[in-house]
């Protein structure tokens, strides 16, 4: 009897744990270590090497000397260059401003959208949510391209304005920081609306009813109940928009001019045009260290706390 009871408490996975357990975990674990963790270590290693004209175009920082000693030569010049050269500082500032403005715009447009979607009936809500996701499934490049066609000097907006005689010559809409922000907002808006929608839907309707019953006006109810309770959704959405836009390459390349030189474009140019792999790696390491890691840790910490 005792044995039967004991067995009933076990789940399939507990029994598997003796043999299969390790195997199940090991396959994805190994894959992620080999193709995600080790590449990051390569990035770190190459950020400390020197650029040379060779294949591959960097020096090896580890060298086994004839006496059998391991020589390690760390070159911090790449990092110093990044801090010294104004080009990189401008790049960081530009990326930061563009990503912040875009995130804010996404929030300002996304919040009322999410609020209205969350407040509609269940059936309508799922359709409205699907409509937010749908453009996300059409190609990313094509969504950027759509704005190229709309904003270009021979594009639709200029065409209409010219025909209506509002302007006499085409406005320079594309190749501006404005176009880059617009593109980012357009592409990443669903990332803002969906988490917001989820957190607003979760708010207990009885809380709102109670507030109304006690004579609280709708606007005040919104600011004292809904807004604070949907804060986690605002944070989640903002992170989802901010992180990809700070490292964004394609949108500033296609919609931005030469002055919107973002971190993503600098990494790309250093790598493909200047063939300076170590500097590109150093920049990538700094981006991980100062933006990606802090934001993910902070988000994780918030999750654990709630």
């Amino acid at each position: 009897m005792k044995r039967v009871f004991k067995r009933a408490k076990k789940t399939p996975y507990d029994i598997l744990s003796q043999r299969g357990h390790g195997l199940i975990a090991a396959i994805p674990y190994l894959w992620l270590i080999i193709f995600f963790l080790i590449p990051c270590l390569f990035l770190l290693k190459i950020s400390f090497s020197e650029a040379v004209l060779a294949r591959p175009p960097y020096t090896d920082i580890f060298k086994i000397l004839p006496e059998g000693l391991l020589q390690i030569r760390l070159n911090v010049e790449n990092y110093l260059t990044l801090f010294r050269d104004e080009l990189y500082q401008m790049g960081v500032i530009t990326s930061f401003i563009i990503a912040s403005i875009s995130t804010l715009c996404c929030l300002l447009l996304g919040y009322p959208m999410a609020y209205t979607i969350a407040r509609s009936s269940k059936k309508v809500r799922s359709i409205l949510q699907l409509l937010v996701i749908l453009p996300f499934w059409t190609s990313f490049l094509i969504r950027v391209y759509a704005w190229m066609t709309l904003l270009s000097p021979t594009g639709i907006i200029n065409g209409i304005l010219l025909r209506m005689h509002v302007i006499t010559e085409p406005l320079a809409l594309v190749q501006t920081p404005f176009a880059v922000c617009l593109g980012i907002v357009y592409v990443y808006l669903p990332f803002m609306v969906l988490p917001l929608c989820m957190s607003i839907t979760k708010i207990d309707a009885e809380l709102l009813d109670a507030a109304y019953d006690l004579g609280c006006r709708p606007l005040k109810t919104f600011f004292t109940i809904t807004l604070p309770l949907s804060f986690s959704g605002m944070i989640a959405g903002s992170v989802l928009v901010f992180i990809p836009s700070i490292g964004e390459y394609v949108i500033p390349e296609l919609l931005g001019g030469s002055e919107t030189l973002t971190i993503g474009r600098i990494v790309w140019n250093e790598f493909f045009i200047n063939m300076s792999w170590p500097v590109a790696s150093a920049l990538a390491i700094l981006l991980i260290l100062f933006i990606v890691l802090p934001i993910s840790f902070w988000q994780r910490w918030k999750e654990v706390k709630t």
């Binding site: 193709f35 590449p39 990051c40 390569f42 990035l43 992170v239 992180i243 990809p244 700070i246 490292g247 964004e248 390459y249 993503g264 990494v267 790309w268 790598f271 590109a280 790696s281 990538a284 981006l287 991980i288 990606v292 934001i295 993910s296």
Partner: peptide
């Protein structure tokens, strides 16, 4: 959360 450009470069 990794920007594409870093994933691509590191791989």
């Amino acid at each position: 959360v990794m920007p594409d450009i870093i994933t691509g470069l590191s791989l």
